[in-house]
Design a binder for these strands. Structure first.
Lengths: 213, 213
DNA sequence: CCTACCGATCGGTAGG
DNA sequence: CCTACCGATCGGTAGG
């Protein structure tokens, strides 16, 4: 009888909750130790689950890494991409995706800055499925920037001779430099500089009045 | 008698040569495995020296890491900074330091791209002497960019209202984005894009005639 | 999810 | 520079 009651606890839902808790910790650890430096043992200690208990959820380190990239991607989409998608198409989306990234850094959701900035440079020279998953997300994000810029150009919010590919490249560079600088110096003033750099590049005034933070 | 002849072989010079050979391999391995992923064992295998033979040269992993950062810095100075310093002060130096960086990537001196781009993002969240050594070199390079830009502005090669700090930030971003993109896609065409982006930002034409490569 | 293991490798040491 | 170690940790497995 008791065993039947226990079965009603939806062990699969519990399993998913545990798995998500492990992966959230994995993303956080990976921003400090890297995707390769991430170990089953340290993850076990951080979550309070036994080493093979952690391991059982994934079956191999590579599967753990792939799942970690996916969860990091979902968090990035929620924190950086979603706020931009809910804005007016064009320049507003372009500005908001950059500002959301800077706020994402300021809130220090993870101890080691942006997961993907680190993962791209770490996995770039390590061929395999994990690198491909990271590259896929990187391309997705750059393509999103490009589409925002293309729309802004078509709406006349950018010069008609603006080179969208070059603009995208520059904005991605500003984002990377901001992460590198912020992580190294832990100085939030760089985030204000980054905002001004983005606005200068897009020929937009620094509208302090509408700043939320 | 024989022992006295052997003593003339300058064992200290041999030791230094071995040490430099180890460190060159260490920089190369670190661009793939990271400064933290760099291990005495893999370094021993790569150089053909025993593990404790490698270890004896440094005394601790941290000392090995510090020496590796120093050697990486000397190579970067030789390959990227020196060509710029031998140019005419100002805009010419600014263009050349960027172009030298792009050529440095194209030649693929190390398998994992720019050592410092990777090291900054890897060590940023790992406080300690190694992070400080990396941060020191990063600041030195950014300060060099800033000085080149400041001189160019004073010589009237840049607009009189150019914000040198913001320009420096953008150029550093272009350099980082180029490394990230090149390492991920291993596609040299990104280096030509990067050259054009730098020239557009500095309002300089793409003078193909004077291109060496 | 657990305990209890496996062989390999880690940074580091002893002694030469 | 070497061989031969040390305890700790790695990814992974057996068996429950």
């Amino acid at each position: 009888m008791a065993s039947e009651i226990e079965r009603v606890r939806h062990p699969r839902a519990d399993g998913l909750r545990t798995r998500n808790a492990i992966l959230l910790e994995a993303v956080s650890l990976a921003t400090v130790d890297g995707l390769e430096g991430l170990s089953i043992g340290s993850l076990a200690k951080a979550t309070g689950i036994s080493k093979s208990g952690v391991y059982a959820h994934f079956g191999s380190k590579e599967e753990l890494q792939l799942a970690t990239v996916d969860v990091a991607g979902r968090i990035f989409e929620r924190e950086v991409i979603a706020p931009a998608l809910s804005c007016a198409p064009g320049l507003d989306q372009l500005l908001t995706v950059c500002d959301s990234f800077f706020e994402y850094l300021r809130r220090q959701i993870f101890p080691g800055g942006c997961f993907f900035a680190g993962a791209v440079l770490e996995m770039g020279s390590r061929p395999g499925p994990v690198k491909e998953r990271v590259a896929e997300f990187q391309r997705l994000f750059i393509e999103l920037l490009r589409q925002f810029a293309e729309t802004a150009k078509q709406l006349g919010q950018l010069p008609s001779d603006e080179d969208v590919a070059m603009l995208t490249f520059e904005l991605n560079g500003i984002i990377l430099a901001t992460d590198a600088n912020f992580v190294m110096n832990n100085d939030p003033t760089i985030l204000q500089v980054a905002r001004r750099v983005v606005r200068r590049r897009l020929s937009v005034g620094d509208i302090r009045a509408t700043d939320l933070l």
